Amino acid sequence: MSSSRFTARRRCLAAAGVAAALALTSAACGSSGDSSSMPGMDHGATSSASSSPSAPQAMGDMPGMDHTDTGNGLSDTKDGYRLTSKDATLPSGKQAAYRFMVTGPDGKPVTDFALDQTKRMHFYAIRSDLTGFQHIHPTLAADGTWSAGLASLTPGSWRMFASFTPAAGAGRGKDFVLSRTLNVPGNDTRTPLPAPAASTQVDGYTVTVKGEPMAGMDHPLTVSIARGGKPATDLQPYLDTYAHLTAFHEGDATFAHLHPTTKVTGDQGGPELNFHAELPMSGNWRLFLQFRTGGTLHTAALTLHVG
């Protein structure tokens, strides 16, 4: 990713630090096409874009919208761009599609999106206590409607994030993260967030995070991956890097995408991966690291404390 993209994202995250709040919880991920051992997590691998802008009226205001434009990913509007959806609830215990649309400052559906780590849209579903996490690459219809195929959702409150970069219009080249809330009916059982830890295990791999970031400051993070006590060097390219790292803040689910600085140099990488991190506020953050080996997608989750 270019330095200008890093700068744009840094500014976005720095703005997030001025407006934030409260306290949250843990992890899980599966896949449509990719597999993961963490129940409830889904990382779809489909991304398509149709560009004929013959769009109907955008999906209207429904329960679940968040109009406060704070720049921390917790609003459905920013700089005239808006995330809309008619889906305020989805059923629990089964796969379901979440449909949404992005409209521009002119009120029309946006259909022209730039590639970001090989995809035109990164979509995240995160449960309010952070025990559910899904990262999907939805499909785009000609009318501007995106469809994200979600794996089974557990009852409770969820927040749906859309991360994108318009390829035209007033927001051309600018990174946006917009979100809306959604309710899954049923018995909402909350799980405490696991305590901060330097390492975790997933599918036989040990993932260790090194670094002590401070709120609102640029700081490198190093992730090392081992298997059976030996460095893992069989990481396959994934989203134009060897691992994808996302973080959510305990309490309000503020979003942060930690950008990889390790370049892809071949069909296999590891064991160490470097990331640029600027987490906008102090407290606990739940990190989700996704990496692929042998064609299988693994998702590791751990809690990182930021001073």
Rank of each mutant, 00 (worst) to 15 (best):
G204P: 10
Q236M: 14
S47M: 07
S54L: 12
S51L: 14
G44W: 00
T208Y: 11
G71E: 04
A23S: 15
P185F: 08
T208Q: 15
M160I: 04
T77M: 15
D87G: 06
A226Y: 07
L115Y: 15
S85A: 13
T165S: 12
V18W: 14
L287C: 07
T222I: 08
A58P: 02
R227M: 13
E250M: 05
P260I: 07
H122P: 01
G132S: 06
A168M: 13
G73M: 06
E212M: 13
D188Q: 14
R127I: 01
G216T: 04
F164K: 01
F248C: 03
M121D: 01
G64V: 05
Y81V: 09
L221S: 02
Q201M: 10
V264D: 04
S48P: 01
R99D: 11
V102W: 05
S50V: 11
T233S: 08
F133V: 03
F161I: 02
G169M: 07
G171V: 13
I136W: 00
A167M: 09
R5N: 08
E212G: 12
A23N: 15
E278S: 10
P109Y: 04
M1R: 05
T154S: 15
A8K: 06
G173M: 12
S163Q: 11
K263S: 11
D175T: 10
P194A: 11
P260Y: 05
K86Y: 14
K263R: 15
R9S: 04
H135V: 00
H298Y: 04
K230M: 13
H244G: 02
A125C: 09
M59L: 11
A170Q: 15
L297C: 07
S37N: 14
P194Q: 08
G169K: 08
T208E: 13
T246E: 02
F161V: 02
S147E: 15
L287N: 02
F6L: 11
L74P: 03
M160V: 04
M281R: 14
G144V: 08
T261Y: 00
G132H: 01
A151W: 02
Y124K: 01
G266W: 07
S163N: 08
H43F: 02
P213T: 11
T77E: 12
Q134P: 01
L221A: 07
A15P: 04
M214P: 02
D69I: 10
D175S: 11
D112N: 15
L22H: 13
T222S: 11
S282D: 12
V306R: 04
A253I: 05
S92H: 11
